[in-house]
Design a binder for these strands. Structure first.
Length: 586
RNA sequence: GCACCCGUAGCUCAGCUGGAUAGAGCGCCGGACUUCGAAUCCGUAGGUCGAAGGUUCGAAUCCUUCCGGGUGUGCCA
């Protein structure tokens, strides 16, 4: 259930009744920051003090009294300058947790009432270039956001807007003729394309004739030349194979792969339209939108002197033009209500301008740039995509290293007798732990922050890191395995009660899950879920140390098994929502 | 020049829809394995929240200015 929403409605009703107001006022429910103040506080009395000309504590008192007798609330009392502190009734919490335990489909998280159709645009690699660390964030943050929104009940369309069209293909066509190796192209397509692209772009820099030939081939491709089109298709198809392998490793999938090439035909019309409407004009041969002279341009852009260019002076279109066409397609053909762009912060100006254009074109769609910070190395500087020898650190090699490091730690653990991984499970456990650690290290932080990439912290296996959460899950599983019990069967039969302090702490944490999911979805902040699951794992580990489960008797044993099952499911669900897997033994 | 982001414990980071004594992890120091897994748990120490003003009953959070760091910014994406 959505706990805060429920308490907010109780609180605002209590305020209206207690103070005899004409309508409800916001209760301003907030979790307390210290358990001694109870579980939640109502802050709504204080802002009313001025309006009603009474001291806030005097207003808070009747509000607290009005809340007495509600079964969710054990105690409501006035404190400090005028807070109303709410202590939830353990019996009521236990009832709600038992409901969630029965709800195997949704773990107590209600589906949204207003369903939106939301395009999540993420990952978007360039065909001729290897994915490197820089692409990691968009891919996993975007994947997490898509899962969260989808679980909430929205219609989500994951679109991989790949860079499969543009100047690099002229160079590639000429370059492949010169240096291409078809065998290499089959075995590691992107590496081969990138190798050739690099050679070609170097050569084009100093060989005007070569560059000219590349432009000719590009023009031929873009005007539909069959041979070049076939070559281009070939490049795209082989690249797709290695991209698919990487996405499988990351457990990310897409509903659509509409790259830049998909919009090629729509581009001339867009430029004409913007010219006709007087939004764009020609300048120095290029078609531009100047914000200072455009009526209806947002204030933040008015001082922007440099224009938004939608057609180069040589007549070629840019990603700005393609992006406009993409939004129109999403609105007209996909009938989307919203589109989220999970793209590096450094492109925020581009999106600000794109969204301004769409607003000038009266496109009725909610567009949002979900930005994120840069990946930094241990030295605090942007992480190099090449190592000391100049080799590119690809995303694929990074994931390999993560698995390798995880495996080393597992081998050590087995040798020391601490871990219980069966030989046949080592591969899978290394994969889940290694890749989970990489994802968690990234996702646990506010996405806007730059993020420092540090192997040692990531695979530390201690404290707030991926393996900590997976370990808590394995502990839950292990209780059921040891007791010869089935988690699903317990979920259907157990009744949760909350007595011991550790049970209450755990129970209260479990009860917040739905709120967290909703907030993460509303703000596109997967780290809220990570934080919740971390706190949950902590609460569970505390419970584990203080409360025997299998050795408890009768109803207590049943209740504790129920708490363990619900914890396990919530960890699995929560990690699943951010794209991280769990294993039963590790 | 203009725009955006950032500055919180030794380090890495939460908190920033304004709410009580600013929180975690790592690291440091000290405890807990004859008891469901010690990749765990419990505890100690550690902060003028970059600075100064302002708004407010109340500011790490909102506003202004300044200092320091980063990013973007006419024909790449």
């Amino acid at each position: 259930m959505l706990l805060e929403r429920y308490l907010e409605s109780l609180g605002s009703r209590a305020i209206a009744e207690a103070l005899d107001l004409d309508g409800p006022r916001p209760a301003l429910i907030r979790p307390t920051q210290d358990a001694k103040f109870g579980d939640f506080q109502i802050n709504g009395a204080m802002p009313l003090a001025k309006e009603l000309k009474k001291p806030p504590r005097e207003l808070a008192q009747p509000i607290a009294e009005a809340l007495a007798g509600i079964d969710a609330i054990e105690k409501a009392e006035v404190a400090g300058p005028g807070f109303v502190n709410i202590h939830l009734a353990p019996a009521w919490i236990a009832l709600k947790l038992t409901d969630a335990l029965r709800d195997g489909e949704r773990d107590g998280v209600p589906a949204v009432e207003d369903v939106s159709k939301i395009v999540v645009d993420f990952s978007s690699p360039n065909i001729a270039k290897q994915m490197h660390v820089g692409h990691l964030r968009s891919t996993i943050i975007g994947g997490a956001i898509a899962r969260i929104l989808s679980f909430m009940g929205h219609k989500v369309i994951r679109d991989n807007h790949i860079g499969d069209w543009g100047t690099q293909f002229g160079l590639l066509i000429v370059g492949m003729r010169e240096w291409g190796d078809e065998t290499a192209l089959q075995s590691d397509p992107i590496a081969e394309l990138e190798r050739v692209y690099k050679l070609a772009s170097e050569r084009a820099g100093k060989d005007e004739d070569f560059a000219g030939r590349a432009r000719v081939e590009l023009a031929k491709l873009q005007s539909g030349d069959e041979r070049n089109l076939a070559l281009w298709k070939h490049f795209v198809e082989v690249s797709r194979v290695s991209l698919d392998a990487l996405y499988a490793e990351l457990d990310v999938s897409f509903d659509l792969w509409l790259g830049e090439s998909a919009y090629h035909d729509a581009l001339p019309g867009i430029v004409d339209d913007l010219l006709e409407r007087g939004i764009a004009r020609e300048d120095d041969g290029a078609v531009c939108i100047f914000w200072g002279e455009t009526d209806g341009a947002p204030k933040s852009l008015r001082k922007q002197k440099t224009p938004f260019i939608i057609r180069k002076k040589d007549g070629a279109f840019l990603y700005s033009t393609t992006d406009i066409a993409t939004v129109q397609h999403r609105k007209r053909q996909l009938h989307a209500d919203r589109a989220l762009y999970v793209v590096d912060n450094r492109q925020s100006l581009h999106f600000q301008q794109l969204f301004a254009v769409m607003s000038l074109l009266d496109t009725d769609m909610e567009l949002e740039h979900i930005g994120f910070g840069t990946v930094l190395g241990k030295d605090g500087k942007p992480l190099r995509t090449r190592d000391v020898s100049g080799e590119v650190i690809t995303l694929a090699s990074l994931l390999e290293e993560a698995k390798e490091r995880a495996r080393q730690r597992i081998d050590e653990g087995i040798a020391e007798g601490r871990l219980r991984v069966q030989p046949e499970e080592i591969d899978e456990v290394s994969r889940q732990v290694g890749i989970g650690a990489v994802k968690y290290a990234d996702l646990r932080q506010n996405r806007l922050s730059d993020y420092q990439f540090d192997w040692d912290k990531m695979i530390s296996f201690q404290g707030n890191a991926g393996p900590y959460l997976q370990y808590a899950y394995a502990r839950c599983s292990s209780i059921f395995a040891k007791g010869g019990l089935d988690m699903d069967a317990i979920s259907l039969s157990a009744t949760i009660t909350l007595d011991a302090p550790a049970e209450q702490t755990l129970g209260k944490q479990l009860l917040r899950f739905a709120d967290v999911v909703y907030q993460a979805g509303a703000t596109s902040q997967p780290h809220l879920i990570c934080e919740h699951i971390y706190e949950l794992a902590r609460a569970f580990n505390g419970f584990y140390a203080a409360c025997p489960v299998l050795d408890a008797d009768g109803p207590t044993r049943q209740s504790r098994l129920g708490l363990t099952a619900l914890t396990a499911r919530q960890i699995r669900r929560g990690l699943g929502l951010v794209g991280i897997g769990v294993v039963d033994r590790m």
